[in-house]
Amino acid sequence: MAITVNRKKLNFWERLYLPAVVGGLKVTGRHLFRTLFGGKAVTMEYPEQKWTVPTGYRGAPYLVKDQDGDTKCVSCQLCEFVCPPKAIRITPPGTSGLKPDRDNAEKMPLEFEINMLRCIYCGFCQEVCPEEAIFLKQDWSHVGTNRAELIYNKEKLLSLGGAAPGIQKWKHKLEEARAQENFPVKV
């Protein structure tokens, strides 16, 4: 069924649009005046001047290491699954023989790529990660001369991400297991 929406009938001045144009010009004039005489610019001389983002701002996602310098990511691929624009691409270690850089959790990604051209900074990857291995940092400006340059690989993501201390659950598990090593008594 068609629905008729009743529109407000415009009066003569409104149909003329002139008062609205004048109103707009007033705002422009006010800013012009302020910039010229008040020294208060509302724009920024980018890129010389850069915007400082507020804390909590969600910028580009990077991989982080733990306090021992070990890769936290265990290649669970949940972030790859949850990423809405499919910006993340993980190559699991498979039978490649890649040993993780730590001896507690058995798995580490062979390759981890984030396409920064695709990423929409939604933060789902950070939210879903069971290892607290990926964080949205404050970076928001990515420049490259071609598309391939903006696909960041594992090495780059780890170096950009830095360290983020955490609870190190795999390490504790391993320590717990080592403490039990001589029990039960092996014959």
Binding site: S75, C76, Q77, F81, P92, P93, G94, T95, K107
Partner: peptide, 12 residues
């Protein structure tokens, strides 16, 4: 399975 070990997550 050693062949499938760490190759791909089942949900993909």
């Amino acid at each position: 399975s050693k062949d499938f070990r760490f190759q791909m997550r089942a949900w993909f």
